[in-house]
Amino acid sequence: MPRLRVVLLAVALGGAAPLAGQGVLVAPHAVYIDHARRSGTVTLYNPNPEPAEITISTAFGYPVTDSLGHFVLRTVDQPDSTLPSAAGWVQAFPRRLTIAPLERQTVRLLATPPAGLPDGEYWARLIISTRGGKLPITGAADTAVRVQLNLVVNTNIGLAYRKGPVATGVALSLLRARHVGDSLVVWSRLQRQGSAAYVGTVRAALVDSTGSVRSTLSAPIGVYVVMEPRYALSTAGLAAGRYWLRYELVTEREDLDPAVVLRVPPVRDSLQVRLP
């Protein structure tokens, strides 16, 4: 290859331009729509110095856990009538928009459920897809140009539509724990009861023989069907010996409007563990 061409190519590929900021901030992080109002809103904010091109869509999915106990989203492209999907009848207005730098915009969500929809809770995922302003490709095609990696960010949040009276609960079973490194790893089986997802908080505590709480954990959780989540309690600095693991689920969420949290009594279990 001629030396000049090598240099030109090197110059061309070396000119990787900075990324135009992409992605928007979304609030709230879960949307609840009531059958009486049939509408909701989300607010989008573009914190970047470039306009953000946004497309909003819906899909059906709900959280489950994988074989390691990590949360993953189970999606169903074509949910049948046995699945409580609202994805087909909740729409965003507008569905496409551009938000100027440092500006915010409210997007309205309108539900048009089918006639005769039974009472219950129906789920969807709201996907806010953001593409940043494109960088120009300059220069002649065979000489100086720029390399461009575009980024599309899809922010995926939960949406629930409630019609009529709904109830929730959770069955807790198979509580177990194992000491790994400086953590006590805890699993349990959680199965939703009732007609609505169980939305609450998992709390765990390690209590020593004197009754003192030596380590705690608190994490938000949503049990839609069944799951076996994994949590890790720190055991760093704890003396060897027997401890009680206290584990509970409560319908408290500081990050959600209390009006949308369905209250039920706490569910608890405990387990004696030995730390080496």
């Binding site: 190519l9 065979d142 720029r146 990696l149 575009n150 980024l151 995926n156």
Partner: peptide, 14 residues
């Protein structure tokens, strides 16, 4: 030589 582009998609589930 010339301009090369690609698209990276990042899906973020909360």
């Amino acid at each position: 030589a010339g301009g090369y582009t690609g698209t990276v998609i990042l899906n973020v589930v909360f």
